[in-house]
Design a protein around this nucleic acid. Structure first.
Lengths: 261, 261
DNA sequence: CGTCTCATTGAGCTATATCAACATCCGTGG
DNA sequence: CCACGGATGTTGATATAGCTCAATGAGACG
């Protein structure tokens, strides 16, 4: 549950890499890619295994190839906050990340690890890479700010609605099908992501369901169908697209709101 | 309350700039600096004025020279979350920041604005600059993650304690005196920063005061003395420095805890 | 000194946490 | 293939931290 599962020998992997044309790597040409290939190491993880680096090493950069990982941070008493979910093409920059951060696999996954120093050396030579890294950081930051707004100012229902829509758009971006949307986080993990408890997440799901906004695939409680994206978006507080009608509001009934099956 | 107060003509300002040796700018030599100088514009803001850019322009980058600004984001119904406080040397990267973000001055302040495109052009030529920008983004990201943990998982008292300590260390970094610490945010703004209400922030301050952890300078409720940094840090949930004793806990009494004056 | 804004304090209310019971899912071994 | 058992999810009952509404107090500024 702690040690890496498998370390493949480095070689010429990049050309066939699943994320060869995503984000950071897409900025490199074949020759540059070969350089990267030479210094990158590859690691597979089983669900729940976490990515640990030798304490001495400066935190390297890890690029996700397949699967999903979560980045979380804990308080000394165990309360934990999930900061982000990493998907193929995303990368984790151990840079200035404060201690206490854990990266662990949600599904079978594989990552490509590049020592920070080497990445820097490459980036110096290839501006496109540097630029791509910066773009990645910027979008990560934008995500963090959305998340901040959610945690600081949204109600449980709003957070969950926001979460679902965001997951859907991420899923689509990675090529997964959003209909139904597959949740790779358990209820407890969703709770830790949204700053709520498992129970609240669960209750909120049922309310959204009863209100007809979502539907779970029978027997597969990790598969959600988003039935009414618009109302969900209103609930999540999406700013109306500059020219929308009235102040619409979506309310969820507490009691036994018996809605569509 | 919305329009810029003053736009100074561009010239050779950089050499005498208050942040010439901070973060991003410190990575440039005199020649490079002159290039930057040529494309940068300068703007002063009075408290409450906000930094608005022409909608057409791609969000530029702004470097804070003097004063303090807050970066916040709002929900359509007005709830707002303060994401960050900018101090001299910090910069605001409008890059991928989602719409609805506002930057406004807390105190008299001045910023140096560089159109994004121009910064990029400069960065291409000077790797140190690119690197500095990246470092800045990384530390911003690390801050955002701390903030996320606070909003998602900490109690009001913990958030406030954490806030105070963080403010103190920032103040020191910028050369302000941390004894007493000057709060540049109003109670309401602190609330918006911490995801609480004004009342809760106020009550929490008095409890911390009654517990003897902090003290307000008489008559200057924006000046706090941190009397017991250690207990404050424990309250804020600082991870014990790897080798500390027992599980210490700090509790704040609700009732009329009459402690040191 | 008045007036206005900001901060503090009080009293109750509510969303969410907590505690607890149950249900469902899923892997394992018969 | 089914039965069992632990893990995960749902639902209910209650507690509570923090919110809301409301009144009072204190600084700032003309």
């Amino acid at each position: 549950m702690e040690t890496p599962f498998f370390i493949a020998p480095r070689g010429r992997r990049c050309p066939g890499c699943p994320v060869r044309n995503c984000t950071v790597c897409s900025s490199l040409d074949a020759v540059q890619l070969a350089e990267l290939d030479a210094v990158a190491s590859f690691r597979k993880l089983l669900p729940k295994q976490s990515l640990v680096f030798e304490d001495d090493l400066e935190m390297p950069v890890a690029n996700v190839l397949t699967g999903q990982l979560k980045v979380s941070r804990s308080l000394p008493d165990g309360r934990t906050q999930v900061m982000r979910v990493l998907r193929p093409g995303d990368f984790f920059d151990g840079g200035k990340i404060s201690a206490g951060v854990t990266v662990s696999a949600l599904t079978d996954s594989s990552v490509c690890i590049v020592p920070r120093e080497l990445l820097d050396r490459l980036a110096v030579k290839h501006r496109a890479l540097e630029r791509a890294v910066r773009a990645e950081l910027e979008s990560e930051l934008a995500d963090a700010q959305d998340h901040l707004l959610a945690l600081g100012r949204m109600t449980a229902a709003e957070r969950v609605a926001d979460f679902l829509l965001r997951e859907q758009s991420h899923a689509l971006k990675v090529g997964e099908n959003g209909h139904p949307l597959t949740l790779h986080l358990s209820r407890a993990e969703i709770a830790d992501y949204l700053g709520l408890t498992t129970e609240t997440v669960s209750r909120t799901f049922t309310r959204l369901k009863n209100a007809g906004l979502i539907r779970f695939e029978p027997g597969r409680l990790a598969r959600v169908h988003i039935r009414d994206p618009r109302r969900l978006a209103v609930l999540a507080g999406s700013h109306p697209p500059a020219g929308t009608r009235i102040e619409e509001t979506v309310t969820l009934s507490q009691g036994a709101g018996q809605a569509p099956t």
